[in-house]
Simulated scan of single mutants.
Amino acid sequence: MKQRVFVVGIDGSESSRRAAAYAVGLARRESARLIGIYVRPLPSGIVSLADASGAAASSVVASQDQVVTEFRDTLQRERTRLGVDMEIVVRQGDPFTELCQAARELWADAVIVGRSEGLLHRIAGSVAQRLVRCGHWPVTVVP
């Protein structure tokens, strides 16, 4: 029998941390493989034009690296303690597109994401809402 695969979207927000914690517990109970997907947003052209020295871009990359490092450290600690097969994949691009592509490539049985905390996402549609509407996988949205 094929091992189940769960994909969890992480972005460093509090809701994505809760989603990751939920996903770890679910993967442990289901003896499933857990893949954390971190999507680095494409650099904004406006930031590049306004920041000739590159300091702002370096700051953004450093904060993104911190999110990945934090999640990797947690994986190292919890993998042994909980006995869950976990890994992290870093991609670059649009979070919705990259999460869908990763879930397709990994033959995911479910996708777990945190609820959007931004007001704009509540109006225009969040990644979680778009994943639910996509309808390809069961999606759990963790508040």
Rank of each mutant, 00 (worst) to 15 (best):
R4I: 07
V5D: 03
F6S: 04
I10A: 06
S13R: 12
S13Y: 09
E14V: 07
A20L: 12
A20S: 04
A23E: 08
G25C: 11
G25T: 09
L26F: 08
R28E: 14
S31N: 15
R33S: 08
L34E: 02
L34M: 04
G36T: 01
G36D: 02
I37Y: 05
L42Q: 14
L42K: 10
P43Y: 06
S44A: 11
I46M: 09
V47H: 10
A52H: 01
G54I: 07
S59M: 11
V61L: 14
D65A: 07
D65I: 01
V67W: 09
V67N: 10
F71K: 07
F71L: 14
D73A: 15
E78S: 13
R79L: 01
G83N: 02
G83V: 02
E87R: 14
I88C: 01
V89S: 01
V89E: 06
V90I: 13
D94Y: 10
F96Y: 11
T97C: 03
C100L: 10
C100D: 01
A102L: 05
E105P: 00
W107C: 15
W107V: 15
A110S: 13
A110D: 03
V111C: 01
I112H: 10
I112F: 10
V113E: 03
V113T: 04
G114S: 08
E117C: 00
R122G: 12
A124D: 02
S126L: 11
S126G: 10
V127K: 04
A128W: 04
Q129R: 14
L131F: 13
R133H: 15
G135F: 12
G135H: 09
G135W: 12
H136G: 08
W137R: 07
W137K: 06
P138A: 12
P138L: 13
V141C: 03
V142I: 15
V142H: 10
P143T: 00
